[in-house]
Amino acid sequence: MASTQVETKTSLTQKLKNSSLKKKSIPYLLVFPAILFVVGVLGYAIVAGVLMSLYDMQLSFADAPFIGLQNYIYLFTDSTFLNSLFVSLIFVFGSVVLGLTLSLSFALSLYKCKRSGNFFKALSLVPYLISGIATAIMFRFLFSGDVGLINMILSTFGLDTVNFLANPWWALLICILANVWFVCPFATLILLSGIQSVDQELFDSAKIDGAHKHHILLKIILPLIAPMMGISLIWLSFASFNMFDVILPLTNGGPGRATEVMALYMYNVAFDELQYSLGSTVMVIILFFNVLTSLIYLKVFNVNYSE
């Protein structure tokens, strides 16, 4: 009898354990298709890209010999690529600084926006929902030399017009602005979610203690949303390093090669010049920069999900 009771108890414990295991496994099971998709599509592309970068595969020639690291050596001695690397670094730095400043401002404004808050949150997402090509065309209309809206406004006020897209530095600035317009909304949402997660009592206590607004921002909000800022920066850097669909129709890298970022260089090399291996090599370099900057942000902003 006692033995039967023990067996029943063991069986029950086992059933409970199994049930608990099943429950725990469900989230992983549900995530599995997404992981499979990411590994299948991205993972394959990365592995194939890395391998391809070690060969000399050009569509103009039938053979594709193994050349080791020669593509990397070529790129880091090629003035055109080095120019695109330099342009990329300026582009990403400008986009990140401007993007983070604006998205933080927008997030704070939206946090304060109690009436019709949801409407404005939805509205702030609109630039992100517009395609890159549409964004580029919009900016082209705004900054065209002769019929652009900005120059019309400048003329109205009796000011000299500017050939924005014909001047290398102006053109780069316009590309940064277009990029920020495109990537800022998502960064805003990330930061807003961070601010909303801060305990309201902390603000109230600070106010009672006589803290000024800038103290609240610097001493409470920014330290508490640091992990979210890290995530936001990863997004801004990642999106800027990969930015291609806005710049292509906006300047296509011109004037000269003043706005030819690495992603655009990669496209030109791979699809205009049909040098697939060289394009893959640039892909690997962009990936390296993305991983490197992400690791730096994760470290600096102490993003740790286990805490």
Binding site: S144, G145, D146, N163, F164, L165, A166, A171, T251, G254, P255
Partner: peptide, 21 residues
């Protein structure tokens, strides 16, 4: 030519011609 012609595409060139610019 227009000072911003360095950034012109074919659409802008033909638009300038058709528009009398």
């Amino acid at each position: 030519i227009d000072p911003s012609a360095i950034s012109w595409s074919s659409g802008e060139m033909r638009g300038a011609f058709i528009g009398g610019n």
